[in-house]
Simulated scan of single mutants.
Amino acid sequence: MSDTSQDRKSTADANYTERLATLEKAGIKRLLPTQAPYRWNLRRLKLGRVLDIGCGLGRNLQNCGPDSVGVDHNPTSVATARERGLTAYTPEELAEAADCGPGSFDSLLCAHVLEHLDEDVASGLLTQYLPYLKPGGSVVLITPQEAGYRTDATHVRFVGFEELRAYADEAGLTTQRTYSFPFPRAAGKIFPYNEFVLVSSAPTA
């Protein structure tokens, strides 16, 4: 798997946004509601108002609670999410948003982001956005398993259950549960859409 600075940078440019949009309609996705299980998984977690970190085009954001907000370092992706009727900001815009101050969100969602980042950058990402979370709020981390990890050249570090727990611990979060979705863990070696999911909570004070 390539780990060049150009690969990492490419998640911030317009070509990456175009790639995400193309993948949304590729193959079987044109014919079947392939996102239905993932929408259900998010909704059953009852996350309330969510800050979706690395929201991309808004695939997960559109399935979060009312008034949820996305943030992404790719301004083209942010613009696309807005065109879809979602509320999304770049990090700089989020810092200035009147309704997004400290403690404004019930939950943080970080889905398919950490595998794009070096370890130190990933740790800093969680620290950066934790102030936006209410005391006792939830933090949900999702990453691809082996088959999914291999599908994207911008993935730079495999992040499994062990690494997710380490990120949560370092951020001062309490891990509530981890699970493989939508299929058992073994499927992740061949099914590219199997995910690691960690659900955690922030301190209450």
Score class of each variant (00 low, 15 high):
residue 65 G to C: 04
residue 17 T to N: 06
residue 71 V to Y: 01
residue 49 R to K: 15
residue 28 I to D: 08
residue 94 L to T: 10
residue 61 L to A: 08
residue 20 L to D: 01
residue 27 G to T: 06
residue 36 A to H: 10
residue 73 H to F: 13
residue 37 P to L: 09
residue 35 Q to R: 13
residue 72 D to Q: 12
residue 33 P to S: 01
residue 76 T to S: 12
residue 38 Y to Q: 08
residue 54 G to S: 05
residue 46 K to G: 10
residue 79 A to Q: 14
residue 65 G to R: 08
residue 81 A to F: 11
residue 64 C to S: 05
residue 43 R to D: 00
residue 35 Q to C: 00
residue 75 P to V: 12
residue 84 R to P: 01
residue 64 C to Q: 03
residue 83 E to S: 08
residue 85 G to F: 09
residue 35 Q to N: 12
residue 67 D to G: 12
residue 86 L to V: 10
residue 67 D to I: 04
residue 44 R to T: 14
residue 24 E to D: 13
residue 74 N to T: 12
residue 47 L to S: 12
residue 23 L to W: 13
residue 27 G to H: 12
residue 73 H to K: 11
residue 65 G to F: 04
residue 41 N to P: 00
residue 18 E to G: 06
residue 44 R to P: 03
residue 58 G to Q: 11
residue 60 N to H: 15
residue 63 N to Q: 12
residue 17 T to F: 00
residue 78 V to M: 02
residue 94 L to K: 05
residue 92 E to Y: 00
residue 47 L to T: 15
residue 42 L to A: 10
residue 51 L to I: 10
residue 93 E to S: 02
residue 26 A to I: 13
residue 25 K to I: 12
residue 49 R to H: 10
residue 74 N to C: 12
residue 73 H to T: 15
residue 18 E to D: 14
residue 90 T to W: 03
residue 70 G to S: 08
residue 45 L to D: 05
residue 85 G to Y: 07
residue 47 L to H: 11
residue 90 T to S: 08
residue 55 C to L: 11
residue 94 L to Q: 03
residue 50 V to Q: 04
residue 88 A to T: 11
residue 27 G to C: 09
residue 87 T to P: 03
residue 38 Y to P: 11
residue 18 E to A: 15
residue 58 G to H: 06
